[in-house]
Simulated assay, not measured.
Amino acid sequence: MPNILEVSQLSKTYQSGTKALTVLSDISFSIEPGDKLSIVGSSGSGKTTLLGLCAGLDRASSGSVILNGTKLDSLNEDERARVRNLHVGFVFQNFQLLPTLTALENIMVPMELRGEKGIKDRAMDLLARVGLAERHDHYPTQLSGGEQQRISIARAFSNRPKILFADEPTGNLDEETSVKIESLLFDLNRELGTTLVLVTHDNELAKKTDRVIQLKGGRIISNSLNQALEV
Rank of each mutant, 00 (worst) to 15 (best):
A20K: 13
A154L: 05
M108P: 02
I119P: 04
L67I: 06
C54I: 08
L192T: 12
G145L: 00
I181W: 05
K120W: 03
I107G: 02
R150I: 02
P169A: 08
E6V: 11
L51I: 09
V179N: 11
L97V: 05
L75Q: 13
A133H: 08
E176V: 13
L98S: 14
F92C: 01
S178H: 14
L101A: 11
A156G: 10
S152H: 04
T48C: 09
A133P: 00
D167T: 12
L24E: 08
E204Y: 06
S224E: 15
E77N: 14
G52M: 09
I163Y: 07
L21R: 11
K208Y: 05
G46V: 01
D26N: 15
A103Q: 02
L24K: 13
S64K: 15
I181Q: 11
V7N: 11
S224V: 06
E79M: 08
V91E: 00
D210V: 03
R135W: 03
P161S: 07
D125L: 08
M108L: 08
E116Q: 14
V23I: 12
L5P: 02
R114W: 06
S42R: 15
R80M: 12
A206K: 03
L127D: 00
T177F: 09
K36L: 02
K120M: 05
E116W: 12
T18D: 08
G218P: 07
